[in-house]
Simulated scan of single mutants.
Amino acid sequence: MITYKNVGMKYGQNTILHDINLTINDGELFVLVGPSGSGKTTLLRMLNQLTVPTDGDVYFANRKIKDYDVQKLRLDMGYVLQDSSLFPNLNVEDNIAIQLEQKGVSKAKRHQRAAELLESVELDPKKYAKRMPSELSGGQQQRVAIIRALATEPSLILMDESFSALDPVLRKKSQDLVLKLHQQFKTTIVFVTHDMQEALRMGQRIAVLNKGVIQQIGTPHDIMQHPATDFVRQFFDSKTPHWWNMDFLIESGLLREISFDEKLPVVTEFKQLMNKLREVNQFDFQYQNKGYSMTAQELIAYLGQEGGSR
Rank of each mutant, 00 (worst) to 15 (best):
M1D: 09
G8C: 04
M9G: 04
N21Y: 12
L22F: 15
I24L: 05
V33K: 04
G37K: 01
G39Y: 06
N48C: 11
Q49I: 11
L50E: 14
P53S: 14
N62R: 13
D67V: 03
Q71R: 15
Q71G: 09
N91S: 06
E93K: 15
D94L: 06
N95H: 10
I96M: 02
L100G: 06
K107Q: 14
R113L: 06
A114E: 01
D124S: 15
K127W: 00
P133T: 13
P133V: 11
G138L: 02
Q142A: 09
R143C: 07
V144C: 08
P154I: 13
S155F: 08
L156P: 03
L158N: 10
A165T: 14
D167Y: 13
R171G: 13
R171L: 08
K173E: 15
K180T: 15
L181Q: 08
H182S: 12
Q184N: 05
F185H: 12
I217R: 07
A228C: 03
V232K: 08
Q234Y: 04
D237E: 08
K239R: 12
W243G: 08
W243L: 12
W244S: 05
L249M: 15
E251C: 02
E251M: 07
G253Y: 13
L254F: 11
I258W: 02
I258M: 01
E262R: 13
K263M: 03
R278Q: 15
V280C: 10
Q286T: 13
Q288S: 13
S293L: 00
A296Y: 00
A296C: 06
Q297Y: 08
E298A: 15
I300S: 14
G308F: 02
